[in-house]
């Protein structure tokens, strides 16, 4: 792609990622949540894949690391649920209502759910685009 798209992508990708974390962290007090936040995070990777070539993308992202991230976030999600069921930590007393730090452990569930959704979608996009990069007659 040309220089305009590359420069715009360099400016926009961090902002899109910040917005994805904002949507997923504010999931319990405003519209949004783990799933839309994760898909916004993955759409930043989508823009990166469209604008840059194969080597430039693989310098920063590797598929194995993203798969590991998905596994770690899934285990963390399971750990939070088991912590709620078994230990029952009473963190609602430490929180103030109607602020960001409220709603029990929902904020952690939203955060790790967003990471699981984002890494899964990144793996899907990566496997789709790698086929396009392999075929020589493709326009990408």
């Amino acid at each position: 792609m040309d220089a305009i798209i590359k420069t715009t992508t360099r400016l926009l990708v961090p902002l899109i990622m910040v917005f994805g974390f904002y949507v997923s962290l504010h999931g319990h007090i405003s519209p949004g949540g783990g799933f839309p936040g994760g898909v916004i995070l993955a759409s930043a990777f989508l823009l990166l894949v469209i604008a840059f070539t194969e080597k430039e993308v693989e310098k920063h992202f590797s598929e194995i690391k993203i798969g590991d991230l998905k596994s770690v976030a899934s285990i963390a999600l399971l750990g939070i649920v088991l912590l709620e069921v078994i230990v029952r930590p009473d963190i609602l007393h430490l929180q103030t209502p109607l602020t960001l730090w409220s709603g029990g452990v929902t904020i952690f569930l939203n955060l790790f759910g967003a990471i699981v959704v984002a890494s899964g979608l990144v793996i899907i996009v990566y496997s789709l685009v790698k086929e396009e990069w392999k075929s020589k007659k493709s326009k990408w």
């Binding site: 519209p31 949540g33 898909v39 916004i40 759409s43 789709l128 396009e132 493709s138």
Partner: peptide
Amino acid sequence: APDIAITQIVVTAVFGTFIYVVAVN
């Protein structure tokens, strides 16, 4: 229903379009 609106934009208008473009390609 702003929650559904966010999901509609993000999933269908972004990822659906991308997957359709790959299929058309």
